[in-house]
């Protein structure tokens, strides 16, 4: 089984980054219609955007924190946007530092954890399951 995948170690240059739609309308768009999120120097991120990120990341940040983080994130994003100075159109991205491919395991069983151990760290348990408060959103 899977002779062709096992133990095959070799380097293959990644084939470009994850292409993704430019839609979403968050990125500033310059006059030529080319999206360049790193173009502006200041005011890179608004308080509202920080609030959006906090929701996305499930962080119930306070109003005071929003102000603090908006300022700090603006400075940090301004600094890290320097990566855009490098002309790298034909440079392949590095997603993994080690040039390995096809690292796989055989389809074999290994021991599970005892259920007491599984549930031992849980904030709430019922009937051998993890108990959570009511869920608002439906599964994605």
């Amino acid at each position: 089984m899977s002779r062709g995948l096992r133990g095959h170690v070799g380097h293959r240059t990644p084939l470009g980054g994850l292409a993704r739609p430019k839609s979403g309308g968050q990125a500033p768009v310059d006059s030529e219609g080319v999206s360049d999120p790193t173009a502006s120097a200041a005011g890179r991120i608004s308080r509202e955007e920080v609030a959006h990120l906090a929701r996305l990341a499930r962080l119930a940040v306070s109003e005071d924190e929003l102000d603090l983080f908006a300022g700090q994130l603006d400075v940090i994003l301004g600094a890290v946007a320097r990566v855009g100075e490098v002309a790298a159109a034909d440079i392949p991205p590095t997603s993994h530092a080690v040039p390995l491919t096809n690292v796989l395991r055989n389809d074999e069983l290994s021991p599970c954890l005892p259920r007491e151990a599984v549930l031992s760290g849980a904030p709430a348990v019922e009937d051998g399951k993890f108990r959570v408060p009511r869920i608002l959103t439906e599964e994605a």
Binding site: G4, H96, T101, N102
Partner: peptide, 28 residues
């Protein structure tokens, strides 16, 4: 279904804990 407050952004990126797959053409 219950609509979400804002559009989901899945923030995909290559899984760093798994290395790429390169199936050998002869095996395929």
């Amino acid at each position: 279904g219950r609509s979400k407050e804002e559009a989901t952004d899945y923030r995909y990126f290559p899984e760093p804990d798994l290395v790429p797959l390169a199936p050998d053409p002869s095996w395929v």
